[in-house]
Design a protein around this nucleic acid. Structure first.
Lengths: 225, 225, 225, 225
DNA sequence: TATGAATGAGCTTTCATTCAT
DNA sequence: GATGAATGAAAGCTCATTCAT
């Protein structure tokens, strides 16, 4: 009986995953409003009604998808935060991870936009997930400011939002789709700008230059990570 | 006769402006798809049909709104590009201007998002306007790279997209709505990060430091908040 | 004063005629439902509101147009009926006249169709006009039957409707538009069929005869009705 | 499974037929433009949306109805053309059939009118069906002319259009609705006029013949008038 | 439990008619 | 009188959701 149930439960999970994958596809192709329950059902190969056995509504379906995606990010983040590295390197790794997930599917960008633009009342769980990520990143930035690694004169919130803005921009859609820039390079440039700005490194004093040591560090650890 | 006509024309313009304002409101609140012609009409206090005397369709209405907003930006940009200042200062002024416009109404952010996310076929005029702005900013960045002011190792496109990403983020919506940061400070921080990155300035030289003038302007309470 | 009034009245009449002409044009091009008051007004070069000073409604406008057209037919008919000719020749002339009017503008066909197909409640005047024409033609046919010129076994109503059906068909639209047949020939063929049928003229024997069986089947009660 | 499917399919067909019947009713009562999907739905007793599960659009619904009706005519025509009878008898049978169908529901008349008057782009299938019927009738008439049965001096197209005009007139609507004439008689009269004209048959023996003198009279006066 | 036809609220758009100027 | 912007009822159509099978 238990086995039977767990088998059924397993099948249920599998179907749910299939639905979420199909939903992701359509969502990314058409956007929230032009995504119809019919099309999702069709892609999975089930009837519309079946979707409603897994999800209470279209919104619920999308929210669930969002949560799963966020969970992946949260898990990766947990690992990165535990690393025995300096803040800047941990932050660098985190950026790598986010960009990697974005590169796979632009779901993160999509979520971020939808959750802001539409009224789609983020339910408490999703809100919490966003908050956790938010807090963790703020902590990282604060730690860096306390350590003298990051500029203490910048409000941490502004630092965070700037980073998210840069990452969640059209960068990946536009530049990657045109095949102009390799993903790794793109991320490296991004981090370079975020950490050091676009101003040219001072030739004489090396203010903006990276020391040879630092360069090695970055190219091997931050950038190539 | 001329007076009569100009009076009617004036009224027409006024009503059209009212419609566009109402549309802007609803658009910002609900997003394109959840904005209904009914609600716009209701807010202006006219009948639905009246909207169609000014605009051929919902899309036309929104596009017109977009064009007006972009025109303001384009005009300001024209002035700024003519300034007899160094590239970094001109770019700084441009960022000021964009942020000022965003602060007034978040229409720019909205436009930028909608124009990317939705298929809403940007008509050729709007496309051209976007391109002009894009080109001008790329020129500015290239000039800076040639002058040795900006980091020549960064691809100009990436520099541009990063800037736009930072500006068009939730920053203004989130931080300004919470009244945590004064607008001027917010812009200053933003530029600081974009130009110099979040890394702490090297102790010796002042490369990453804010000018004395700038420092004074930044109220310490906010920075330390 | 009277002169002044009559001048105004004259202008009024002229404008009304212009409106009716424009209406006719659009009606013929697009059909009743796709004819908009706006387009009529535009073609005349007046404002929509002006139309309503002449006609109470769109339906009234069209009805008035119909009446004028019918009046022309009625007047011509009056002359023809007075002719000192045999019935068949008078009928022939009448057919000529109707076809001539149709050829000028297909308004007659249009009227006939609209007045049947749409519910457009024919107002009493128009009804009366139709009736008058109807009666006159029936009289002509009856006279012919009494004179032994027309086949007395055919119910007059059927004779009339057949004639109208033939005339008001696609004939003029189709054949004339393709320039296949000259108008005069077309009318001649039409009358030939109506008067003599399509059967080949008997060279020797019974070309025009009905079989005995058919004759028996025609119930005399109906024919004499 | 098959049984289950066929049951569903059957129900589907039934409902579709109901919709088409209701559509036919309203169409006949009000004409294409004044027929609303709402009213059709109301008469069937279903929601508006249901109609769109069967037909892609209002036009599609009507076109489908037209095709079904034409198909019935085409099938009957096929049989008639195969008959081993003289052309005039086959044509006579064809007229019988068309009139029979018109008598049942005036859909044929309606179709014929709408297809001419409205721009309703007859889709290629319907166009083809119309053409087939057209061609078959022209062939029949030509055959008759070649056989010396029909008057070879009349253009076949004119013969055809005259016939259609007579049949598709108000005859059935008007006369049948007044119950003045029995259907069979009506058709017989119609054919009598079409085959032999309204002119009285020659007095002496041959019921329907014109004397040579009369013939001359008509051909010179009526026809050449 | 899966199905998919049915539902109906709600959307964009049209246009005859009105009425303040 | 002439004007044409404003009106608003009504149309065709969509799609998330329900529910009988």
């Amino acid at each position: 009986m238990t086995i039977h149930q767990s088998l059924k439960e397993k099948q249920r999970q599998e179907r749910e995953t299939l639905v979420l994958q199909a939903a992701q596809e359509v969502l990314l192709e058409r956007g929230y409003h032009d995504t119809s329950m019919s099309e999702i059902a069709q892609r999975v190969g089930v009837a519309k009604g079946t979707l409603y056995q897994h999800f209470a509504s279209k919104e619920d379906l999308v929210l669930t998808l969002f949560k799963r995606e966020l969970q992946v990010l949260q898990d990766a983040m947990k690992q990165i935060l535990k690393e025995q590295e300096s803040v800047d390197i941990r932050l660098s790794h985190l950026v790598d991870e986010i960009c990697r997930q974005i590169a796979k599917k632009h779901m993160l960008i999509f979520m971020w936009r939808e959750s802001i633009d539409t009224g789609m009342e983020l339910d408490s769980q999703l809100q919490a997930a966003f908050n956790t990520i938010h807090m963790n990143m703020l902590s990282l930035l604060d730690e860096g400011k306390n350590n003298g690694v990051f500029n203490a004169m910048l409000p941490t919130e502004v630092m965070l939002e700037s980073l998210i803005g840069m990452i969640m921009s059209r960068l990946f859609k536009t530049l990657r789709s045109g095949k102009k820039v390799r993903h790794e390079d793109l991320v490296r440039y991004l981090k370079c700008i975020y950490f050091h700005g676009i101003t040219a490194p001072a030739s004489s004093s090396q203010a903006y230059q990276l020391s040879a040591e630092e360069k090695d560090n970055i190219s091997t650890e931050h950038i190539n990570a």
